[in-house]
Design a protein around this nucleic acid. Sequence first.
DNA 1: ATTTAGCACTCGATCTGCCAGAGTGCTAAC
DNA 2: GTTAGCACTCTGGCAGATCGAGTGCTAAAT
Lengths: 343, 343
Amino acid sequence: MELSERKRRILAAVVELYVATGEPVGSKSLCDTLGFNVSSATVRNEMSELSRMGLLEQPHTSAGRIPSQKGYRVYIDTLMKPRPISREEKQYLDSMILPSAYDPEKLLDGVAKVLASMTKYAAVSTTPSGESGVIRAVQLVQTSRRTAMVILMTSAGTMKSRVFHCDFDLTPEILRVFFRLLNDKLAGVPVASVTPAYMQTLAASLGDMAMMMSSALIAVAETAQESMRSDVCLNGEVNLLFYPDFGQNEIRRIVDFLSRPAELCRLLAERNRGLQVLIGRESRRPELEDSSLVVSRYEVGGHDAGAIAIIGPTRMNYGKIISNMEYLSDSVGRMLTELMDLD
Amino acid sequence: MELSERKRRILAAVVELYVATGEPVGSKSLCDTLGFNVSSATVRNEMSELSRMGLLEQPHTSAGRIPSQKGYRVYIDTLMKPRPISREEKQYLDSMILPSAYDPEKLLDGVAKVLASMTKYAAVSTTPSGESGVIRAVQLVQTSRRTAMVILMTSAGTMKSRVFHCDFDLTPEILRVFFRLLNDKLAGVPVASVTPAYMQTLAASLGDMAMMMSSALIAVAETAQESMRSDVCLNGEVNLLFYPDFGQNEIRRIVDFLSRPAELCRLLAERNRGLQVLIGRESRRPELEDSSLVVSRYEVGGHDAGAIAIIGPTRMNYGKIISNMEYLSDSVGRMLTELMDLD
DNA sequence: ATTTAGCACTCGATCTGCCAGAGTGCTAAC
DNA sequence: GTTAGCACTCTGGCAGATCGAGTGCTAAAT
């Protein structure tokens, strides 16, 4: 599997040319573009060997070569020079997400937007999952005469809120008492254990209060449940339309896949920490066999929390994307850690 | 411009057949489908006259007829029988949006989602605009040692929140004092007048407090600013891909238009109350000349607040959509009014 | 032992002409 | 006013011809 220097350069050139133009690369144009001092015939021989090794393939007999999925893999792992992100790019990314850095969901939604508009691919992000977190605090705020808001913060960096109605006028006193009770009972409790059954027993221990505040208790349970869920933010699916790589059918399959948040979430969750590139079938999702996925997990307060990702044609400018996504997922983690005061 | 009963029936049948099949309707198939006791030749004569009146048109000489934009207009205004929404449909719609009825933005986003999935067109909704509202209350909640959340409610049914950081540990006392100050100064003030300049003078009148809480003041100003904005929720753009009515080019123009929230917002804002159908060029947007727009404004607490809309090909099943959208915008209005305790 | 030039071959893309089918408009009869 | 009949028009699909890009192989050159 050792490649000669010349083969390495040829493979890299094929990938880069193909990514740039979208057309199979012939021996002639390869010679022209990369000023090798060899003839097209030599290049042809090399290419033919790369084909035999499974790194290049031909759409049909009399066409040029395109990289195989294995070819892309070798390119990414050993040939591609990582292009460090520039100061301008950093500033651009920061400036796009900073305005929504006041709320985890808004932030991740903003990240998906900027990713989509920057890469021109489809972008996905998941909000921090509070699955393994414990309740840090519950807050109660009156929002009108008979409505109030429950806000539930977890140690995993989530913050969820919900408005509820009462059928009597709320007073600061009532809320204060109930606030004490709630925090006494719930602080430090793993969100995962706040099930309907748990709330039942909690209600029992509250006596009269539980009757009055049943809508509040329901709201608390719902925010707890919701803290465990990762929201999936999807953006820029339409970008995929403009790649000739995808036909009507591929598009349908991909869009259909993207429209299933649960599966998408699972796909992003089965990655390791850090950044990972999945080319075509490597994702083990038949719907994505013609697409590539670049996933980068982010951490909040030192713990793995969520992911950002883009999905595009296998023919993708990996170099540019990887550095940007690494920076972006770092930024997100930092901002959320700060926002949630977890540092 | 009076149409004979037979012409009316023929026009209606052409619209309905064309909407159903997407193919130009010929005299023969018209005769078959609608069991008129006349021959295709007679129908041909009638159709030819409808063409002369500008209600039908022919893609080319030897094709069947399709409705012109004027034809659709006549159909919608005078021929279509409003199909009342069924109990099941109501239940379905309610069940889809109820789970997100705890927050205005979530709700409108949910509405756009259900609209898109139900109609298979692109759906848009705008969150309530607080432009003309006054501040009902400002709430402050501690969310961690050094962070707190500002929540700002307006009489227009908006509720916006923002987390801010302090560089000292917050205490309930500080927050309580600051809460009193804020509400004294801001309750009843039109959100539109809470400009940076206004906050400047407010800060001046707060003395020491203003220094300590400058990040809070900024957060308040930002929530006020944001209360005035309508957020645009967009969903289901990809649905448009699957209509043969649109070619690559039309799709590009439409998607491009949809990606500009400001214009979209303006388009929805220039409508009257209630529901309106805009066929093709009636929207006065060249990008939408091949599409139709169904907009329905909703009210919160008795005042016009926002809109929901769908965008699809001119060839659209208007009857079904109109009744559903009327119900949905009513529901949204009701839910928000209740959520914000404005009834 | 590599590299190169030359050449026959393959295959997709494009263009052409052709034909069938669907639908019309018109005319003349009912 | 309605209908049957007919000539006419236009699209869409299909078959065949041609073009061009690119390959693989062979034999000569370095």
